[in-house]
Design a protein around this nucleic acid. Sequence first.
DNA 1: GAATAATAGATAGAACTCTAAGGATTATGC
DNA 2: GCATAATCCTTAGAGTTCTATCTATTATTC
Lengths: 162, 162
Amino acid sequence: MTRITVLKDNGAARPDGAVDYPPAASAGHMVRNAHRAFQRELEAEISVYGVSRGQWYFLRALWIEDGLTQRELSERVGMMEPTTVVALAGMEKARLIRRRRSDIDRRKVLVYLTPKAEKLRDLLLPVAKGVSDRAAAGVSNKDLTTFHRVLAQMIGNLSQSD
Amino acid sequence: MTRITVLKDNGAARPDGAVDYPPAASAGHMVRNAHRAFQRELEAEISVYGVSRGQWYFLRALWIEDGLTQRELSERVGMMEPTTVVALAGMEKARLIRRRRSDIDRRKVLVYLTPKAEKLRDLLLPVAKGVSDRAAAGVSNKDLTTFHRVLAQMIGNLSQSD
DNA sequence: GAATAATAGATAGAACTCTAAGGATTATGC
DNA sequence: GCATAATCCTTAGAGTTCTATCTATTATTC
């Protein structure tokens, strides 16, 4: 198997020997800006329903499956466990979830959606889809596919190096 | 001029009428994950030099031009002013910058890099470039170009709706 | 030139996220 | 079956970012 390494020359050494690597040329910077734009939009729209963006990711995981332990939730959402604890405490106060210690293994805390949170599902998922659609306006399906593929590859490349 | 709207069907309505929009299909979610991956990498590498990611963006702007006011810096970095104040306070304590009130307009605070911060430039810019290169490994230049174009379009689309 | 408006920073308080360390509970090894 | 290890959750403390509000300085208006 032949491994081809493509050298990318965005950000060259300057004639004087100093390094030049402007933010605009950086994939990291662009991803950051896009992330902030997405966040701003999403937050503005879901806050109308009394949901913060910190709660959003957990709601989304629980809409797929609830009755999870906090550790399982942390893994699915991709947050550290202390973050989950804080977020869930807020969600419990906002009556979006209930927490119950497992009878079988009393170390575990099981998380269940309230009816209120279940009703929000069909209201809020379209909101999220709306943001993504608005972001992708004017982008061809072909380019969008490439975009997703590159993004997935980058995520894989970076998490591999841990 | 004909406006063609492409309907994208990632996330369709289900037969039972409920909405289905899994995170994996969401551009927002993927951008978020990529952002977190980039951040984790960058932070790990620059922390070796005693620079936090909160300071990074400001250093980067100041390496291009220093003697800026805090407001100018905020704009260039894309942060709100209180964020800038906090970040600069930390940077001053870390001896990365000095702040001086302008003599001409004493409302303004001018920000200058210390020699220490200037020396970090040629050490840290290659680090940032390394992270981006590692992220883009195995991605063709053509796809990378498409990626950048789509990202720029998305950022434009989203910030337009403010 | 005094009152008002605009500009520049700073402070307070909140939300989100992390690492490090501390319980409580269950599983394992002898 | 008791000591040790592993698992699960929690707390503490820090960093980053925001909105809202305050102070200080300069510009504008009459």
